[in-house]
């Protein structure tokens, strides 16, 4: 990315020089940097839609909003979750934005921005009374098995806190959490452990069959991913931009606390994305997206966030 930019700059200067020499005025003095953002779409409400311009969701919108307020461009690329960190390391993506939980292990391989979201793990079970949350987590449900998406913190929580501590429960890993939910509905597993915001849409898909039976307070923080050492400096720009959008991180004795100023774009986007169902969010995106896709300033971002909040009825 970095050397490419440099080549692009040299080329731009050469073309500009040639244009001036030929008597044309250059269109633009310097082109804005474009960063490739990789997200695993869909993962509602963080990642929705399909790819490129048709992608949206909380992460994706924040990516575009940060680009607008910090003065760069982004291109959204759909890539499977497991592949994103290797792709950032290999220089195939400049930014990973896909609900990444900040962990010390991941931090060794890549860098994180400031945290932007706190998430806990929900335990989803069937609501038919065949098992309860205690029995399911203890491996005493009908199948003695719980499910999670491979590579997620939900999966490692079960491994660290149940399997390794001698609880006789089997952990079944899935490529995506909807497949785990499908197996739960079909009775092949007793519970699914997944991020609390995502569990809401799982239950919304099967309102009569599933319920969130419990929440494990893991206080996980989500962060955006950039290459180790942040060579392009885009991680620092994003952390700075998060503050401009209205999100502040306060260090307290208990840990990091995220404080959101009311009325800011951050507050409006959060209310638009966390709560309403997917269809409402999708309809809102369709009516508001023009402002964000062409956003070049804080004003544009503000009017987009207001539009989303209004369209989702918040």
């Amino acid at each position: 990315m970095h050397h490419k930019t440099r080549h692009a700059t040299i080329l731009t200067v050469a073309i500009a020089a040639a244009a001036i020499a030929l008597g044309f005025a250059p269109q633009r003095a310097a082109a804005q940097d474009t960063y490739k953002v990789c997200s695993d779409i869909p993962w509602p409400p963080f990642e929705m839609g399909t790819d490129g311009q048709a992608a949206f969701g909380f992460d994706v919108d924040v990516m575009r909003a940060l680009a607008a307020v910090e003065g760069y461009n982004v291109k959204i690329q759909n890539l499977s979750f497991d592949s994103i960190i290797p792709a950032v390391r290999a220089g195939k993506c400049d930014i990973g934005a896909s609900g990444f939980t900040i962990t010390a292990k991941r931090d060794e391989a890549i860098d994180f921005t400031k945290p932007y979201y706190v998430s806990n793990q929900a335990v989803v079970t069937r609501s038919d009374g065949s098992t309860n949350v205690i029995a399911a987590m203890a491996g005493r449900g009908p199948k003695g098995t719980v499910g999670a998406q491979r590579g997620t913190t939900g999966a490692s929580w079960v491994k660290e806190n149940l399997v390794k501590k001698g609880v006789n429960v089997k952990l079944e890993l899935y490529e995506t959490y909807p497949l785990a939910i499908l197996d739960l509905v079909n009775g092949r597993i007793d519970a699914v452990i997944q991020d609390a915001p995502a569990s809401k849409s799982s239950v919304a898909s099967y309102p009569k069959k599933l319920t969130v039976a419990g929440v494990i307070n893991t206080y996980e923080y989500f962060g955006f991913v950039v290459p180790d050492g942040d060579p392009a400096g885009v991680g620092a720009k994003m952390s700075d931009g998060l503050g401009k959008l209205g999100l502040n991180v306060v260090d307290t004795a208990a840990g990091k606390e995220l404080s959101v100023q009311p009325g800011t774009p951050w507050a409006k986007l959060s209310s638009a994305y966390f709560g309403p169902d997917s269809d409402t969010i999708t309809a809102a995106w369709k009516s508001c997206k023009g402002t964000l896709l062409n956003a070049g300033s804080m004003d544009d971002v503000e009017s987009y966030a207001s539009c989303m909040a209004k369209a989702t009825g918040k």
Partner: peptide, 12 residues
């Protein structure tokens, strides 16, 4: 296909 069945799990 994934984008469809993630948003509509019942359609997997």
């Amino acid at each position: 296909a994934r984008t469809v069945y993630v948003s509509h799990a019942e359609l997997a």
